[in-house]
């Protein structure tokens, strides 16, 4: 069996809210294999967002081990985490998070700029936009695009650096059901075509049913089940 792309062991996360310590994650362990599609579910307050932030290297974990695509993440500083996010994680957010003043093309090439890549940026960005079916919307600004199209731009941005994982946080939450279905199809298609590992955080069982495995969180602990 090949090495898992995500290897999380006994991870805890404790926040300090004034005087009170909040134990958001209380010892979580799981693996994700390369090319897998999983969903993370749980009611609000279950630690779902916290787990997503840690998987996405947006936040430091308190204790435990986290290995992402062969890299030990637990003890990296902010700038090293930024580099990991840039190279290994593609984010898809519920509210798209595109730069309003920039065209689709500029939005998609942005991660390459932060990677310090000079050459081929625009060609790669165009290719990514083509692969999400937006080849004729390249120079449009987000305000000129529908919600579904904006999310496609976000997905193109997420895949431009060939990340080890795509982390989608309620990717269909702000879309009508038709656009939502199309986005899910696109994400699953990218997984099938390129073998990109896909992690979807959702509270929608309908969305979760698209994935082979669901990690169910309750009160900072996992109740895993095969679906």
């Amino acid at each position: 069996m090949s090495k898992p792309v995500i290897n999380i062991k006994n991870v805890t996360k404790t926040y300090k809210m004034g005087e009170i310590e909040v134990h958001a994650l209380r010892g979580i362990s799981f693996d994700v294999q390369k090319g897998e599609v999983i969903s993370i579910m749980g009611p609000s307050g279950s630690g779902k967002s916290t787990l997503m932030n840690i998987i996405g290297c947006l936040d430091h974990l308190t204790t435990g081990e986290y290995n992402l695509d062969g890299k030990d993440i637990a003890n990296l500083d902010d700038d090293e985490l930024a580099q990991i996010r840039n190279q290994k994680v593609g984010f898809v957010f519920q509210n798209f998070n595109l730069l309003a003043r920039s065209t689709a093309l500029s939005n998609v090439e942005l991660p390459l700029r932060y990677a310090g890549q000079i050459e081929n940026r625009l060609q790669l960005a165009e290719k990514a936009l083509t692969s999400v079916g937006l080849e004729d919307r390249i120079h449009h600004k987000p305000s000129e695009l529908s919600g579904g199209q904006q999310q496609r731009v976000a997905i193109a941005r997420a895949i431009i650096n060939n990340p080890a994982i795509i982390l989608a946080d309620e990717p269909t939450g702000n879309l009508d059901s038709k656009s939502g279905d199309e986005i899910m199809e696109l994400l699953l298609g990218l997984n099938k075509k390129n073998g990109t590992t896909l992690i979807i955080v959702t509270h929608d069982p309908q969305i979760a049913s698209h994935t082979r495995r669901t990690i169910q969180l309750f009160d900072g602990l996992i109740q895993e089940r095969e679906s």
Binding site: G56, L58, D78, D79, A82, Q83, R85, N86, Q87, F91, F93, N97, L99, L110, P111, Y114, A115, R157, N161
Partner: peptide, 16 residues
């Protein structure tokens, strides 16, 4: 703030 958060999420370092 949100734009800064997004830029950081996709790999902007403090310096950037």
């Amino acid at each position: 703030t949100k734009e800064i958060g997004l830029r950081k999420a996709i790999g902007a370092k403090k310096k950037d």
